[in-house]
Simulated assay, not measured.
Amino acid sequence: MSSVNATSSVLDQYQIQPRESKGDELGKNEFLELLVTQLNNQDPLSPQENGEFIAQLAQFSTVEGIETLNSSMNSLVGGFQSSQALQASSLVGRSVIVPTTVAQVDTQSTFKGSMNLPYYSTNAYVNVYDSAGSVVNRVNLGAQQAGSVSFMWDGTDSSGNKLAPGTYRFEAEAYIEGEPRALNTFLPANVDSVTLGQNGGEMQLNLAGIGLVPLSKVQVIGQ
């Protein structure tokens, strides 16, 4: 505030009418005009001290630097938004893999997913639930080493009957050191639409059978 008040007093002294600028801020053009006017109207017998002159030049450099930074940031934001739009258009209709327990399944094809196994397990398996919450089948995987473990489900119930397409829930478990432990599952989903991030926010994917998921949660982008 002190620098603004000082500028106003100098303007009054030399009877300069400042041009309007956004937000009542002194722009670099106004600042330069003020500086030149000061030099033209200074007392020849008592010229401005070098230190004061250098200080004003430093202020001018700061004002110009801030304007350049703002311009660069606006260009950067515009480029980021354009990149987001291009990326969004390429994602719609494709399949992605995200950490979730729910997926929309076409039971006419083999469904593939994976689980994250932190330690060796003597027996790993995946329970499959229908939309009503009933267990319809179990995918037994047997003993598995630590790491990413893939599983497949053929879309049938425990009696071998083909089930209807729809939303199913997958719960992975494994016996580790004799105790059952729930595991994270990673399942595929189709991208129905994309919501671009606002004000620097993250892009959101609208996934079939799941809903909105941040782009940062996507593990793999498929075909």
Rank of each mutant, 00 (worst) to 15 (best):
residue 146 A to N: 12
residue 123 N to V: 07
residue 43 D to C: 04
residue 46 S to C: 04
residue 36 V to R: 11
residue 49 E to H: 13
residue 52 E to Y: 06
residue 74 N to T: 10
residue 173 E to L: 04
residue 172 A to P: 00
residue 211 G to I: 01
residue 217 K to R: 11
residue 205 L to F: 11
residue 213 V to F: 02
residue 101 T to I: 08
residue 9 S to Y: 03
residue 189 A to P: 01
residue 159 S to D: 09
residue 28 K to H: 07
residue 219 Q to K: 05
residue 39 L to C: 05
residue 31 F to Y: 15
residue 97 I to R: 14
residue 162 K to C: 02
residue 54 I to W: 06
residue 122 T to K: 08
residue 6 A to I: 09
residue 30 E to R: 08
residue 81 Q to P: 07
residue 102 V to R: 06
residue 204 Q to R: 08
residue 14 Y to I: 13
residue 147 G to I: 02
residue 18 P to H: 11
residue 103 A to F: 01
residue 39 L to K: 15
residue 115 M to P: 00
residue 172 A to R: 00
residue 80 F to D: 15
residue 48 Q to P: 04
residue 49 E to L: 10
residue 191 V to F: 02
residue 136 V to Q: 05
residue 30 E to T: 09
residue 164 A to D: 12
residue 2 S to L: 07
residue 180 P to N: 03
residue 30 E to F: 04
residue 34 L to I: 15
residue 166 G to R: 08
residue 223 Q to D: 10
residue 187 L to N: 02
residue 111 F to R: 00
residue 56 Q to G: 09
residue 4 V to C: 09
residue 182 A to Q: 13
residue 101 T to C: 07
residue 8 S to R: 05
residue 19 R to M: 07
residue 61 S to Q: 06
residue 154 D to M: 01
residue 23 G to T: 07
residue 172 A to H: 01
residue 14 Y to R: 08
residue 153 W to R: 00
residue 107 T to R: 01
residue 110 T to A: 12
residue 202 E to M: 13
residue 35 L to M: 15
residue 46 S to V: 12
residue 145 Q to F: 09
residue 21 S to K: 07
residue 194 V to F: 01
residue 177 E to S: 15
residue 129 Y to D: 05
residue 119 Y to N: 13
